[in-house]
Amino acid sequence: MLEVINLSKIFYIKINGSKEVVGCQDINFKVNKGEFLSILGPSGVGKSTILKCIYRTYIPTSGDIYYESLLFGKLNIAKISDRTMIALREKEIGYVSQFLRVIPRVTAIDLVIEPIMKKNGISYKEARDIAEELLFKLKIPKYLFDAYPSTFSGGEQQKVNIARGVIWKPRVLLLDEPTASLDIESTKIVIDLLMTLKEEGTTIVAIFHDEKLASLVSDKILRISGRSI
């Protein structure tokens, strides 16, 4: 489904002279359809960089990211056009960042609804029902549904973010520390959600901090140690 070969990302910073910063180096892994891969490793080792390269927020410096797309067949994400990547983001590949990016004047429920309104073309009412059920499962109090997430706690924001990521059931879901700011109970709920998604066929690549949790949920674990320059 997804195969990363010799992936490296180096940032060339050209302000005030040139600097090179290594994001990640020589990353190799393979995930089959419906598998759950966890990425583990100390902070600053480039775990997020890998996910962002797959999502093409970062342009890989070298290496290949092969992905078997439903729309286009097998392709190399490192080389495809922006338009193809937009299509993949809209139809196949989801990404849940570490922190919720709040959009002004958009309520929690609308944030969660947005992906299915756009992608599945259903009515607002239907979408809202689905979104409410999901937020309910995540134990977000009902009075917060129509509030702006900028006032939420870190944990609540993270839950909204995850709800936004899972609601449209992408083929591949990339998660960057989805449980970092959650308590034990919330973590369990999120893990349950992810497992349900996995059973429905979603391939998951997630970054975890907690080794125990990772070994509990994943089929494969990728450990990244230090990086060389």
Binding site: F11, I15, T57, I59, D82, M85
Partner: peptide
């Protein structure tokens, strides 16, 4: 420079874009 908006903002390639983003 031209690209996906999040890529332009998070991984700008051109020195000018890097300056602009920063």
């Amino acid at each position: 420079e031209a690209g996906l908006t999040d890529q332009i903002l998070e991984d700008p390639q051109h020195p000018y874009t890097q300056l602009l983003v920063n």
